[in-house]
Write a protein that binds this DNA or RNA. Structure first.
Lengths: 249, 249
DNA sequence: ACAAAAGTGTTTTTCTTACACCCATGT
DNA sequence: ACATGGGTGTAAGAAAAACACTTTTGT
């Protein structure tokens, strides 16, 4: 809905300052893969509450912004990247428990952002310190950010199954080995290389080969072919996570 | 994030009434299946803007409520159902475009709700009129509710593939034919009954048989066995939508 | 007897899986 | 030579799709 009286409790006259206001913010779970590990961007809090604790980057939605616009602005500020227009940014969900910020009523729209390479954050804005931290040892975070981060991880893991999202973790040109590493890092297991390769190449629009020559993978081994992200968004059929031991009947 | 100064634009002193407030509301896309068609709950607007137009039910989030709590309260008010505690309610996403309500800044957290049978809405609250409308002829709705409704439909359709959500459209005890109708109605096609049956029964925890006897389906035909919703939440492997003609390469 | 809906069986095809194996490069 | 990672092939098994067929009810 939008502003309209229901339930007999909400104002109809729109006296904009008569009722208890909600602050609306965005929180960002910015994920990347560095050295084969899933990392998350965190900022150190300077003041109470949770002073000295790490938190997800974020900030207020300004009066003329949508949450998406605010999220992209914050992403640029916190990472220090010049161009964030091509980066993957997606709404996760909204957190609105009354007590989640002890000071006032704050409703926060959370986003997940996926980055390919990972330059050290430039610590823009006024954030005391911004830094990449391994996902596994990120917590405990301020506020309800542990939960937000866990939700983000779960969502990204699920999206890898049925969307082409994995390419968002890769640079513009990448090898199939790098793409496979994305899956293995987020899912936390290993995949069969020949089968992974077949599935990816059999999905139209997932990746497309780059006409140029092959590249070294970092020294050893046969040079790998380069691919670009394709035009497809969905994966049909999906690339299912290998079933964990013990879960099936 | 939560209230914290970033980017140099947000207040740090928390003068709760000094800045332009955001109104926070919930919008509900309440879906059900009636007579083999997908129906959505709509309310008729009494005043401007969009007076006389149909809209999704919803309302303000009260100062001590989470968005989820507000959504369930609105659901009870608008449907007139005595007990909405068991009904499926899930956050869809948040809509925050600055111009989506011409009067003031309204950020709305949208939810999807799924109902089994469908009593005519009792028009609780102050909504002038509440009514079930076929999904296909629901629009055009007020505000950005066409978009919200379309997003809800897409989300529910996708969730049928990899979750046990379909049982939320069914009464406590149902036949496999009814369950199949849910899929066919939401997806808009036909499924092969023997194969559907096998897939459902092969998925542990999706449905479980009711010890009692068989029931008539409405007159003709062999009485069908009754099932209850199982304990599983996810569907492994998923029940994939039949690919539409023309989409695969 | 017939229509309608539930339920079972079977065959064909497709996809997944688990490997074995070769290729190209750096040390 | 050999370790390392890229890439190809293939045979066994599992799953999905298509369709024929039987069962049980109401009219």
């Amino acid at each position: 809905m939008t502003a309209r009286a229901t339930g007999g409790s909400a104002p109809e006259g729109y006296d904009k300052h008569a009722f208890e206001p909600f602050a609306v913010t965005v929180d960002l779970a910015v994920l990347t893969i560095r050295a084969g590990a899933l990392d998350v961007l965190l900022v150190e809090r300077g003041q109470e509450p949770y002073a000295g604790r790490w938190a997800l980057p974020g900030g207020f939605v300004l009066p003329d912004e949508s949450a998406e616009t605010a999220a992209r602005r914050e992403l640029a500020e916190e990472t220090g990247l010049a161009d964030v227009s091509g980066l993957h940014l997606e709404q996760l969900r909204t957190y609105s428990e009354p007590g989640r910020d002890p000071r006032m009523r704050v409703v926060s729209v959370a986003f997940t952002a996926l980055l390919p390479d990972a330059p050290e954050p430039r610590g823009g804005g006024d954030a005391a310190e911004a830094r990449w931290r391994p996902y596994d040892t990120a917590g405990p975070l301020a506020f309800d950010h542990d939960r937000i981060l866990a939700d983000a991880h779960e969502r990204v893991g699920a999206q890898l199954e049925y969307s082409c999202l994995a390419t968002a973790f890769c640079p513009p040109e990448f090898t199939l080995g790098e793409l496979q590493q994305v899956y293995e890092t987020v899912w936390g297991g290993t995949l069969d290389r020949p089968n992974f390769r077949r599935k990816v190449l059999a999905t139209p629009g997932f990746v497309e080969p780059v006409p140029g020559a092959a590249r070294l993978t970092g020294g050893r081994g046969k040079p790998a072919a380069l691919y670009r992200a394709g035009t497809a968004a969905a994966l049909h059929p999906p690339l299912l996570r290998p079933p964990r031991e013990g879960s099936p009947a």
